[in-house]
Design a protein around this nucleic acid. Structure first.
Lengths: 206, 206
DNA sequence: TGTACATCAGTGAACGCGCGTTCACTGATGTAC
DNA sequence: TGTACATCAGTGAACGCGCGTTCACTGATGTAC
């Protein structure tokens, strides 16, 4: 074996990382293989030694990102402690943060690519569905407001976080985008009962 | 003038309609001009007699759809009476309806193309922003629940409606998608105070 | 330690196809007489 | 009413480019001796 073990795996990871960043920025269809490989420090010819075809790479990127235990990839520097009691509040805050808003390359693909995924094959869509479900579960377990069925509330908070970011990223007016993020965050925290203990308790009583 | 007045305008409208349907289904980049023109009953060569370039067509389609007074285009058959007192409830119900979920071709572009628009030029993004603002205004004016600043609540309901549909359309499991739509609709109506008069009154009192 | 070798990661030229765009031409239309 | 004509909507061949994919080859690496 002429090359050290792990050499191949590491290059493969580099290609996937490069693809992820480029897909997040330009969508699935608008990124040439040459560019993906260049981002990994390689030339286009080598691509097919790693992947069967370009469309194979889509699902690979999604699966890789989604199964990666380090969710911190999502929002670099915004660490979420999954064992904390108010994970929900942390997840929502990180999701709707300015950092996540600005860092398109390292964005959560659910925000950067939902319509691309919707148009893709079942494999990509299933990957998306898995993460969405995971996000809902995490939120559901940490809900403080039990006014509604927890699963319902959790689904709404997830959809609101994703939708708020998707819309905010299309707006031209930066202040408008900030206002929208802030509104979504405010109400999401309120829906989860994480806004503050007083209002949470009050709501639980009626 | 060899052709009747309005002939050109009508053909132009046909091209835009064809483009809108195809864009909604496949995104901006994945639709060849040949296909757009075929959808309008023409051949590709004639395109440039109507539009300066393909990218010119994007903004045109968005603007055309968005400025069209007949919002019923959005959800064919789902009529919203803008003069009614509970417009908000009607808009949200129509937006999150099964009909809108299924009819991708005639979908609201805010649901079918938000990430495509986010990657586009300022013209397309401004068109999106205008409609989003319009939607927020309509919702805001018909809010019954004044617990929060109305604009905040209206923004959240809009983001939730769009986000809920965007995510629902990517899910593979149909029942899961239905559940999500239902959750979003339920909470959106609740946030607006349109769920029922009793709970609306109750919430206004505290 | 040094040299020859087998392996395979990576290169870049080449192919074919599809698409955006152009343009010379066709033919349908309303008008003038 | 009928015919010649000017106008211009629409056609389809052609061009050039970019991209996905293939493949013969190069050269870097660890191993055997």
């Amino acid at each position: 074996m002429p090359y050290p073990a792990g050499h191949r795996a590491e290059k493969r990871k580099r290609i996937i990382d490069s693809a992820r960043r480029l897909f997040n920025r330009h969508g699935f269809e608008n990124v040439p293989i040459t560019q993906i490989m260049a981002g990994a420090g390689l030339t286009h010819g080598g691509f097919y030694a790693y992947f069967k075809s370009k469309s194979d790479l889509y699902a690979e990127v999604l699966n890789c990102f989604f199964t990666d235990p380090e969710w911190k990839n999502c929002w670099e520097g915004v660490h979420v402690d999954l064992s904390s009691t108010d994970v929900g509040a942390q997840v929502v805050s990180a999701y709707l943060s300015r950092q996540h808003f600005e860092d398109v390359e390292n964005s959560c693909p659910m925000v950067a690519l939902p319509t691309d995924v919707a148009r893709s094959g079942v494999v990509a869509r299933r990957a998306f569905e898995t993460v969405f479900s995971a996000m809902v579960s995490v939120l559901e377990r940490s809900l403080l407001d039990k006014k509604r069925p927890c699963r319902t509330t959790a689904q709404v908070i997830a959809a609101l976080s994703i939708g708020g970011m998707v819309v905010a990223r299309t707006l031209v007016d930066r202040a408008h985008a900030d206002e929208l993020r802030s509104s979504c965050l405010h109400v999401a925290l309120e829906l989860g009962g994480w806004d503050n203990r007083i209002s949470a308790k009050k709501r639980n009583m009626d």
